[in-house]
Write a protein that binds this DNA or RNA. Sequence first.
RNA 1: AGGGUCUUAGCUCAGUUGGUAGAGCGCCACCCUUACAAGGUGGAUGUCGUCGGUUCGACCCCGGCAGGCCCUACCA
Length: 889
Amino acid sequence: MEMSDRYDPSEVEQRIYAWWQSSNYFRSEDVSTKPPFSTILPPPNVTGSLHLGHALDHTIQDVLVRWKRMSGFNTLWLPGTDHAGIATQSVVEKKLKKEGKSRQDLGRDAFVDEVWSWKEQYGGRIVEQMKRLGDSCDWDRHVFTLDENVSQAVKKVFVQLYEKGWIYKGTRLINWSPSLESALSDLEVDYKEVKGNLYHIRYDLEDGSGSLTIATTRPETLLADTAVAVNPDDERYASFIGRKLKLPLLDRSIPVIADEHVETEFGTGALKVTPAHDFSDYEIGKRHNLEMINMLNKNGTLNEAAGEYAGLKVFEARKKVVEDLEAKEQLLKTEPHTHQVGHCSRSGCVVEPLLSDQWFVKTEHLAEPAKRVVESGTITFEPESWTKTYLHWMDIIQDWCISRQLWWGHRIPAYYCEQGNVTVSEGQPTECAVCGSANLKQDEDVLDTWFSSGLWPFSTMGWPEETETQKTFYPTNVLVTGHDIIFFWVARMIMAGLEFKKDVPFRKVYIHGLIRDAQGKKMSKSTGNAEDPLELIDEFGADALRFTLMAQIASGRDLKFSKQRLEGYRNFMNKVWNATRFALGAFDGFDASKIEPGTVLNSNDLSDPDQWIIHKIGQCEAEVDAALSSYRFSDATHAVYSFVWHELCDWYLEFIKPVIYGEDSKEKTATQTVLVQVLNRAVRLLHPFAPFISEEIYQKLPIKGEACIVDTYPTPKNDKDWLEMGSETVATELDLVREVITAIRNIRGENRIKPGVEIKTVLAPKDDKSQKILGGNKEYIRSLAKVGELLIQPDVDMNKSAVTPVRMGDLSVEVVVPLEGLVDFAEEVKRISKNIEKLQKELGSLSKRLSNENFLKNAPEDVVTQGKKQMEDLKTQIESLEASKLRLS
RNA sequence: AGGGUCUUAGCUCAGUUGGUAGAGCGCCACCCUUACAAGGUGGAUGUCGUCGGUUCGACCCCGGCAGGCCCUACCA
């Protein structure tokens, strides 16, 4: 079997993925004896292409799903895509525009057909990209938010809520996007700081007896003013209350009213009231029964209510109004003013508050139980801190504007007769519910995309039919998503789940951070700092990308994506690959046919390194298990990384080389057996994070099951007997050997002894046990530290030698390397002095602590005894170093 | 304005019940040693933002301050 010395992911990944899929390994069963584990994929927009945010979100889910699948669960990861009303409609409109057409030219039906054909052609792109990342979704269950059964669910929910009175139609002030010509929900508005002006405008009293000055950032809206408000306690304006003002430019008569809402401190303390174009003015208007004048057309231009300003765009009107006021000397002052302005999160245009007829979901009764399930802990957030944010939002939740003036989406199932009576129905009604008229027209509007998304956990499982899928997999175990859509989506799923399934949609919400660039800025296409995950996969491999994301993610925190780290983990994949190359070479002539992953060997046949590595992989498994169980992904990857690289590769593979290349066949067979078992286990451990390379290697090993992806996930509970071959005692003993080797290497390095030079070393053990351990591992020390003559004897002549004391628990040994003729002693004196200094510093703070009576009195006994013992050790070590330093000078 | 969160090695970040700190990358030196130069061995590096409190002892707990980020709500 030929293996290149560089791991080439591009060759491996697509082949492996196709094989997994054709083998149906991603499939979940509606009926199974296995315990269920389910999660639903937050459906990406069909227009989307995979960005790093998806990559992070999906990798977390895939890690959980693969881990659970390997842990024996009937695992469902339910994929889907979202029709994304505005986004998709915009894409197709742009395409039409290039052809010189508009959606209006085509008409509704033809346009919707056009969108569908666009969706058929390009809508699968993101799914293909998800496969590149390795997402192990149950693709047979893929759902699109406009699929027939989802539409059925949407209609049923709409009708039920309508019948309960929880969906209503009303004329209210809503956020309007002039460029989309559609209503938006509160959540779809982003507030951005904008530098503008505060204009001070004089409003004259009708009777000519005086004037009042207001301050506004939007002078053009005065055209729709219907009052000026002052604070009732503001003495400056007390005499104005109840009198009439002449509205500048239009000369309409408007009253001065008193309202608590007005801040006396801001501006002039007098507020122009435009109830139809400002949210707080709207409230004032309602309180005082003011006329509401709408001065805007749907496209954001001014209408006939604006008189001669009709037809202008808002910003043009503002300019002209200011000029005209100036000409009439009614503009008294213009001062720079920075304030927050709402922008459409989709188109970026400035949002206009607009009075219009829309459909709303009344949220108070839905929010109440949705709050309770989080308060009671039925649903928990990870990290927990999001609980507070969620509850706060549920406290201040407003009714949800769900109608959108678009053509692409779930059309509102409401029908009107000529008289304007409303019939709401799941199917096409034949007659008006009020007047019986057969002439019915369906509402032109569609529903907010999030309306259908909110039903996702059960609409994807066949609801409203009672399906086996729901019985088995609802509620889902966990929902993984970013904090940007907690309110858009998570909250609404909880409300809908409780209302329609009478149960929570998931038990756990894992909230991850957002991806930022190396400078900490939000990644976005427009700023050009977005890394394309597909390019990263091409260059570094999907495994490396996944591993990087998992290593970088820290509990709920945003993460700064680091390409350097990606490179590092690409190197790690290569390391794993090459370790396998070595191992496969080491299996030459090895008969693995009778070996199982859990086959236990006679412990007499095992070398210390064999027992050590088994012990270490057991520890690693425990760490990974604990980390994954509590969603600490970076800890899990770190445990695997450090085991594979620093324990398996750095030490174990080096330890066994003399055995593998040696002649002792019994010893060799034992080591080969352990090696193949450890590697098999290690790639299974690695699999959720790096599925491709682990599967590829798994298949190359002489012992294996059908596929890594469906093999058992190693934990300390699996193959207990096998893990027990790894003894902690032996592990500690071998740690002494490793320390000795490091000490010799350090002496070599610091004294600049060339790697080619074989040195003589004397090990002076301080006790019988150390003597025995070192004796037993003599060959390892010789080969790993490049020692020629190695003596182990309690008494040694330390004259003109480098000396390093080594301790490991109760074990103690002095490493002595005679330097005569090898090097200049000056370097060694320097080295020893450095060590002494270090130890003395430690001793200093330790003895200070131990001489504190209060410490001795109050600290726990074991801390004190440990400190005392440590101090003795330090003293001994320093003494021996001082002695050898003396002998050199 | 209110709330949240963060400030640890040059960079990015770990640090799970308080016992003076770790990783990766980067850096320095030496090495193409028969798995891997995307590698090996060794090495250097931190008054843990600041001030104060609790404690025998604080990166960790409490409070003030400074700075960064995020969210919510806004004064027109």
